[in-house]
Design a protein around this nucleic acid. Structure first.
Lengths: 147, 147
DNA sequence: AGAAAGAATTGGAACAATTCTAATTAAATT
DNA sequence: AATTTAATTAGAATTGTTCCAATTCTTTCT
């Protein structure tokens, strides 16, 4: 599980002009850095508010556009809990999400090493899984929270 | 995996006046029967359209109210795929959902017998999982579809 | 049974997240 | 430098859902 803020600050000027086939504009760099920097699964609104600190003229539409572009180019993942506002996550490792019902914080959880989807699901022969989204909600013991 | 229409028709008049602590009104019976009858994971809109066939005066608000009541009393499960309209499912067995990307159809998938969440996820010690939602998207071989 | 209280239903308004639109600005290509 | 193409912007529109106040149904109480 991880909620670690990165020790290095990501700076827009260090982001290459293109990333994963996506042209990185000023706004996209900003949004991307901010996600990399504060990996707390913000909503589009959260991103908007944070982005405005450094780019006061950025619009919410642009934030949505940037997030969509980043998601489409698989630089960022979109995370949905029920029908709550989507959240965004720059962790590209395969993982799932756990929401602490007490704090609302979202944590990344990984699969056991070597585990395969057919090891735990009764999928019919030949089914090809293209996307998997697993979300958990529950209670974290406070001891674990600190880490 | 199942998408089986039940062989018996569920009739509102056969539903008891109370179910799982929920007073079953005329509308709730209708909504519940319709879900039990056609287990294809309809949206609230779908339910509304179907319900109107037998109850032309039912309102969309009532359908939402009924579905909410049924979900709260755990007679029905709410299923979310990304931010698409919620769908409703009367299958109370523990299961997850697979959407066929070709047809849009949603199928129920069960866990392997005896599998435990800690068998496939790297959850920190002491975390108590209260809710789990797993959704899959992919392609079903047409041979499998027929069944 | 009739009155009173409580709950559910209804239609429409309100809401919140997201998407769309048309105009402007910025970047890339010629 | 001119032209084409793409991205950004503000605001309007859309969509699924929830809220609201009025009415209708049930249930409970005399």
């Amino acid at each position: 599980m991880s909620e670690s803020a990165s020790p290095v600050k990501f700076r827009p000027e260090e982001i290459p002009a293109e990333l994963g086939g996506l042209r990185m504009t000023k706004q996209r760099k900003e949004v991307y850095c901010l996600l990399m920097d504060q990996r707390d699964h913000p909503t589009a609104q959260d991103v908007f508010i944070r982005a405005k600190e450094r780019m006061p003229n950025i619009s919410l539409a642009t934030v949505y556009n940037c997030l969509e572009a980043l998601v489409n180019h698989e630089l960022v993942r979109q995370v949905n809990f029920d029908r709550a506002p989507s959240r965004y996550c720059p962790n590209l490792e395969e993982h799932v999400h756990f929401q602490d019902l007490e704090t609302g914080a979202i944590h990344d959880v990984v699969f056991k090493k070597g585990i395969n989807i057919n090891d735990f699901l009764e999928l019919p022969e030949g089914v090809e899984v293209r996307e998997l989204e697993l979300t958990l909600k529950g209670i974290m013991p406070s001891s674990t929270k600190k880490n």
